[in-house]
Simulated scan of single mutants.
Amino acid sequence: MELPKYHESFMPILETLKSEESLKSRELATIVRDNYYSDLPEELLTQKTSSGANVLLDRILWGKSYLKMGKFVSYPKRGLVQITDKGKKALEKGSLTLQDMQLDQDFINHRASVKTEKEDVIEVEKVEVESASPQDLIDSGFSTIEKEVKTELLEKLKELDPYYFEKVILILLKKMGYGDFIETSKSGDGGIDGIINEDKLGLEKIYTQAKRYNENKVREKDIRNFIGAMSGDTSKGVFITTSTFDDSAEKKAREAHHSIILIDGAKLVDLMHQYNVGVQVKTVYEVKELDNDFFEED
């Protein structure tokens, strides 16, 4: 006997949720374990990862995350999970495999919402375990986890109050090493959301504009208004959005006499992940190698 793979928990998770309005994530994983896998040997049920987490519960929680990517479940409130109409239809169908998930359009769109800078990264579900080196498997696993965190982060940003989103941007720029920042008035700011000092002494100023969009792209008009709102004391600006910029907006920024930096949703979560804004370290792994110098005789 062996532990189920994360994708083998798809149907048990949906079955568990179908009669519940919502469940806490940890409670859901425990119920699935007890109802579907209690016949496993004790040594499997208590098996731990190198960081001390229960392997089976961890895999069930990953199954839940993938179901969320495909919109088979949703998170109605913080920490809670509930089945969607799409999830109920999967139950009626009677099966949901990993291949089904990989071909699902919602899942594809979800994974595509955050681009990776590592174009040659192998997805963890596609990696050939027999032919991959241990380092390949580590890199693939870390890449998959990082991508999921960034995707969830982007979703969270799109749900924020617009004014709080503006503050998040200023906090990020501060963490990136810029100087003090000033939040502009929440009304009548003329398209300027914040002013940051490019250096610690405040010798140069940078204006910021933050647009929290779900689907709408930033247009040329938005960039034009931003440039028009910039006063004579600076020619530098950063325009940030949770969505993307259309071609005309990018062209306007490139051709402007001002220096305008555009940051779309994918780049934004890359920076937040890099500078630990809105995310935290969950686990630290140590990979050790033989210290040959230790065995050298003088």
Rank of each mutant, 00 (worst) to 15 (best):
K158W: 01
D39R: 02
D293L: 05
Y36A: 03
V121R: 04
H257G: 04
K156Q: 11
V124Y: 12
V73R: 03
E92C: 01
D180R: 13
V81G: 00
T30A: 12
S51T: 12
H257N: 13
Y207F: 14
Y66I: 08
L203F: 12
G202P: 13
D106S: 02
H7P: 02
G141Q: 09
A112Q: 10
D120H: 02
L271Q: 09
E255D: 15
V269E: 02
I263V: 14
L96A: 05
G228R: 06
Y66E: 09
D298A: 08
K18H: 05
I182C: 10
E146M: 01
A112T: 04
L14C: 05
I227L: 03
K211N: 02
G228S: 11
T46I: 01
D180I: 07
D247F: 00
M69Y: 11
S259A: 12
G194V: 02
L96P: 09
I83F: 03
K158D: 05
T242L: 11
D270W: 07
D106Q: 02
T184L: 15
D199W: 13
H257I: 11
Q82S: 15
K147P: 00
Y285P: 01
L170K: 04
D222R: 05
V284L: 10
K68V: 01
L103Q: 12
F107Q: 06
K175Q: 12
K5W: 08
W62T: 09
K221R: 11
E21N: 10
S235G: 12
D100M: 03
V32N: 07
L28H: 04
V129W: 05
K88C: 00
L44P: 04
A90W: 00
L45S: 06
M230D: 12
G177I: 13
I182L: 15
E148Q: 07
M230I: 14
I171E: 14
L3R: 12
M11V: 13
I260P: 13
L44Y: 03
G191H: 07
I223P: 07
E130P: 00
K221P: 00
T244D: 15
E20P: 01
A229M: 03
